[in-house]
Design a protein around this nucleic acid. Structure first.
Lengths: 250, 250
DNA sequence: TGAGTGCAGGATGTATACAACAACGGCGCG
DNA sequence: CGCGCCGTTGTTGTATACATCCTGCACTCA
């Protein structure tokens, strides 16, 4: 019932966008494959006008690529592209942390971040960590990063971070679940949490360079996770990103 | 004749996008003002479908802001937003320079950049600098930055840089012309050109940190120009960006 | 046999008609 | 006199019909 209401409440454009995104991320539409509007109409059940808007939105989301002669194809990414996108996110989050540190934040606005930090501590302290805890960690981790970015108080910067994080493999939480299958899982989580603690400390003490550096390094954990996951051939259903890899020789 | 051909060759969507962008940047559409689709149809002379696509494109270009209940309004920027966007561009260009330096570039691919550097040297050597030379500098400067970014060989990064630079006030050349009216003009140009020389040298010697740092500092010249131009009340027709300033108390 | 040309099919680009929704103003009632 | 409700108007959301362009294939001619 509520599902039907939800379906009715959102616009056709959004519905088409979600449906197509799912198809792309699940790998049912192969990278490089052209996706025609009529085909998309058949799939989504909405008419061409909203479908077209959805395609445009997915293009600037980075999942589709415009074909010069018109139309769109599913974008393909190399492993290098993914690593670069992670480094890019780290750089932007680093800038956000530096802004927060240099410009100063009130004790009051730092409060939610510290609470989030404490919650994450609780989760990480478990040994071994349950799958549920991993899932909770992903949620909390996303919240931590969002709060941190907001402390920069820079609308243009937040906009860009959100944009880069929208890529299915560049978000702070993209590889955390994949990591749960690895033997190094707990150790990596402890290190990540230490980064979190350091960046809060640095912001509090207005150490801009330190805050920036640690956030950059923090993002490289995701890069490490990606490489580990690929090498260990982790379940693909934990890694939707890999569906977009060019020449998926894996 | 050729103009009519040109008008016919580009799509209505692009035509509408250009027309609306001009209107926004020229300040004829005030920041915060709602822009209805029918109004846009009257202005551009094309029908609602391409107008709507143009509006969506202008939204993710950053010039428009979606209204929750539907439709768009002209986005307003604070001076802080503009300064942050410049810092953002500097950070991204810094990352590009670091990538180029760390990963190494062939002597062959460095060639065009060096030629561009020499051309810029020619222009900067004049004293005083003619208005034509300033104009040529803007073109060459844009070319230099584009070549530099390409040396990063990172498609995701280049994509983001292009996106940020598309903002009317964040591009590397945004405030160069405005600067021409300032007494400090020549000196600033010499400094900028020295930055150019240093970054090429750093890339050649694979000094990643140096290349990154100098590109960051380089972007701050634009911030300085912006502040100077506002204080000296430079001609507004040299500064389309200022039309978008919130509460343009200037 | 290869290259070029023409045709057919399907794709996107555009315009417009219709439906649903939101904002605003006026009117009536408390 | 003020508050709230309802109708009206203008807006955006959606569907579809038409025009134009591109693409791929087959056929023909050199």
């Amino acid at each position: 019932m509520s599902e039907r209401d939800a379906e009715r409440s959102v616009s056709q454009t959004v519905r088409a966008q979600l449906a197509l995104r799912d198809l792309i991320l699940s790998g049912r539409l192969r990278p490089g494959e052209r996706i025609s509007e009529l085909q998309a109409v058949d799939i989504t059940g909405v008419s061409r006008t909203p479908v077209r808007l959805a395609l445009v939105r997915l293009e600037d989301e980075g999942l589709l690529q415009a074909i010069p002669s018109g139309g769109f194809m599913v974008k393909a990414f190399t492993e290098r592209d993914i690593l670069d996108s992670i480094e890019l996110r780290g750089t932007l989050e680093g800038l956000a942390a530096r802004f927060a540190a240099e410009r100063g934040v009130s004790a009051r606005s730092l409060e939610p971040l510290k609470e989030c930090l404490a919650d994450l501590d609780q989760l990480v302290r478990q040994d071994p960590i349950s799958v549920e805890a991993f899932s909770a960690y992903v949620t909390m981790n996303a919240r931590f990063h969002a709060l941190l970015n907001e402390l920069s108080a820079s609308a243009p910067l937040i906009r860009e971070i959100d944009r880069v994080s929208a890529l299915p493999f560049a978000s702070p939480s993209a590889f955390v679940m994949a990591q749960s299958a690895l033997p190094e899982a707990h150790q990596i989580l402890l290190i990540a949490q230490d980064h979190h603690r350091i960046v809060v400390d640095a912001i509090e003490n207005r150490e801009g360079a330190r805050a920036e550096a640690v956030m950059r390094e923090h993002s490289r954990l995701a890069a490490r996770n990606l490489r580990l996951a690929i090498r260990n051939r982790t379940n693909l259903d934990l890694l939707p990103a890999l569906a977009l890899l060019k020449s998926s020789a894996e």
